[in-house]
Design a binder for these strands. Structure first.
Lengths: 84, 84
DNA sequence: GTAACATTTAGACGTTCATCTAAATATCTA
DNA sequence: TAGATATTTAGATGAACGTCTAAATGTTAC
């Protein structure tokens, strides 16, 4: 649970999640929306992956990132329990 | 919004919120549940206060902290929009 | 007003974090 | 196999963070 809150505490990472909510994207596609280097982006994606918020799958030369929807529903439940 | 996620990213602070969910508490009462110094606790309470997650009111010699319930409902809505 | 208690503020210290550049790895195409 | 493109890894740097001790502030009771 800690890794999830830590992951969400950075604005860039929350923006990445918002992008992936719309559709799966390669690192390069995601990168267009940010002003950080590829290395930094890769770091953020790694943190999101470790928190189980996204999954990654290689598609040839590219790597496609997706929201891990089932974990998101788990988190919603936890939040609900936590806040209500 | 950033200050809220930042505030929630620390386990001690989430535990403070869980305590305050049950009842209002003075700093001294809260302190009994943690192994940190009063200064550190005061720092955490300040972060929660700035994020609008708690409110503080002096009651004589003591200061009583409470969950800011209305803001919590706002946050639940935002989370819901963010995750669904 | 001074002593005792409750809490915050100031300043310091080590750790974690976001970012960068440079180099490494993986894949595709010619 | 060589060169180009996509992404990650390694290592460094400065800022932010959580914690501490010591001192300051606010309040109560004698």
């Amino acid at each position: 649970m800690d890794s999830v809150f830590k992951a969400l505490s950075d604005k860039n990472r929350r923006d990445i999640l918002s992008l992936l909510k719309k559709k799966d994207m390669t690192v390069g596609e995601i990168k267009k929306h940010f002003k950080i280097t590829g290395a930094s982006l890769s770091h953020h994606l790694d943190i999101l992956k470790r928190a189980n918020l996204v999954t990654a799958e290689r598609d040839g030369q590219f790597i496609k990132y997706s929201l891990n929807v089932s974990v998101f529903e788990e988190i919603m439940k936890l939040f609900y329990k936590f806040f209500k």
